[in-house]
Nucleic acid binder design. Sequence first.
DNA 1: TTGTATGCGTTATCAG
DNA 2: CTGATAACGCATACAA
Lengths: 325, 325
Amino acid sequence: MANIKEIARVAGVSITTVSRVLNNHPYVSKEKRAAVLHTIEQLNYTRNMNAVHLITGRTKAIAVILPYIHFFYFSVIVEGLAREALLAQYRLILCQTDYRPEEELKVLDMLRNKEIDGVIIVSTALQPEVIEEYTAYGPIVTCQDSGERRFSSVYIEHYSAFRHGLEYLAAKGYHNIGYCEGRKHGSSSSIRQSAYRDFLAETELPFLEEWMIFDCITEEDGAAVLHRLLNMTKRPDAIIISGDHVAAGLIIEAQKHNLRIPADLAIIGFDNQPIGRLLGITTIDNQLFEMGACAFRIIHDQINGDGGPPVHLKLEYSIIERLTV
Amino acid sequence: MANIKEIARVAGVSITTVSRVLNNHPYVSKEKRAAVLHTIEQLNYTRNMNAVHLITGRTKAIAVILPYIHFFYFSVIVEGLAREALLAQYRLILCQTDYRPEEELKVLDMLRNKEIDGVIIVSTALQPEVIEEYTAYGPIVTCQDSGERRFSSVYIEHYSAFRHGLEYLAAKGYHNIGYCEGRKHGSSSSIRQSAYRDFLAETELPFLEEWMIFDCITEEDGAAVLHRLLNMTKRPDAIIISGDHVAAGLIIEAQKHNLRIPADLAIIGFDNQPIGRLLGITTIDNQLFEMGACAFRIIHDQINGDGGPPVHLKLEYSIIERLTV
DNA sequence: TTGTATGCGTTATCAG
DNA sequence: CTGATAACGCATACAA
């Protein structure tokens, strides 16, 4: 493959002039510019970007840390990221780490390595303290509420959102409220758990350990929840579920067993997923697409801007009233 | 940041020796290796990977071209890709191009630029002839049936799969068969369209132009299909739909209008999505996850292997019988 | 087993 | 407006 040196030779100019043309610098005469452009065309030349990355120390690439991509939650955030990345002409390096800390650290090391200009963490198994150490090497943005850390974040207040959902159920007259959660020990999960416990304690509504159901990840898990409910001696009359697809699984299974929604069981979901729209599931919209878009914009600004203090952007959630409450 | 030169100086060895340690070469004495390792630790050193990429001409990165990520079809293929990439310690660069040819070409240019070692095309707006031109710069794999091209492919035979679905419906006694499709002019779409037309022509089953419904992308589009069906003077008694989520939209809307499935309308979907499992939708499984995994393995072999002729891997589909036919 | 010297392809610096 | 030359940080052929 031709390189800049050969272009210079063939075009009869210096390497520097070729570089100037390549980078649209001023101070190149029309004639030389034309000659260079023509030679580039003729020799089918393109820059070796690795050399550019080496000398400039930038790559216009950003890594995204997440466990999986085939869940609605993650794919929509990435969709938001990708739209903005396309606009800004940045590369997105998808780092699916399966929640393995050692793999996540490898990605952060890419920042030290200069392979990437920044890291966006959608969901992580790492402690905030560990992440903070890497802020020395470049900007980092998380899509979780991590408090006032040395890295930026875009988030919704899960505690407040979840309480809001619970209050909504209580206001509608449901006083026996259950709770379905995904991972038991995730960062957002823990926050929602606290919200649930706190709310029930403060309002003195009944709390039963078995009303907290964990590991609800898939639609099938939602269907399984129905059977757990049916087998309970004291059954909740409402349930809050972190994920509309899980709620959907429960609802469709409920239909088969003639359990009426919301008469026998009210349901409020999370994420405002298409399936929820379809089934008329009342849900809490947490602006996933916007979250991704904002995360990118923040990191982009930090890379190209003054490199000021970390940004903490709170997004507003909203309850979408439909038919299951 | 410290570089290899400084490590060499501090450890009291040559640059070469440091490089050897870095790359786990033999022929380094225990003492010097220890000294180098210690210095690396001490100075918090990591390689500048851009320099490595420049000199080796490889980046261990692969670009993935797709229009969006938040559709089941794409996210599951990427999930398959990502699992294998994690195993092989390759980077996946997610290039969402929104079906814009100019953006897709930019990605292919990354191959010329040496920014990436290969390209996996999940879905594209480009003609195969255009893609073929880039095979000179590195391996390319598509997840579509593109015929015997100079680039590799992993695919299911959509023509055959679709005919199979139609035959299945006909065998079950449905003779008025409609058809829902996503993009009208996509590569797979066109193949499925031909399968539909050919089958109806050959079996002399009724064909009505209005029974071919396009632009069915989302769940809502599926719901809209029901209303188009209801307004038809002559209505199909079965329908084949490319995408279980679209079928789900139709089915749930059908429930609201007391149209019985399959008594009034039989439905066969595509993709074997979770929502289909939930609703008991009879579907054609096209092994999306496996497709992604295979695509990665093929490109990985081509990058690291002999660089032999392009591979064309046909995956088998299967009809999953459930309740909607 | 170790080190020297060269080159990868580009941009940045500085002198003209 | 133009060009020579020095970086960037590393891997590797070759010599010792």
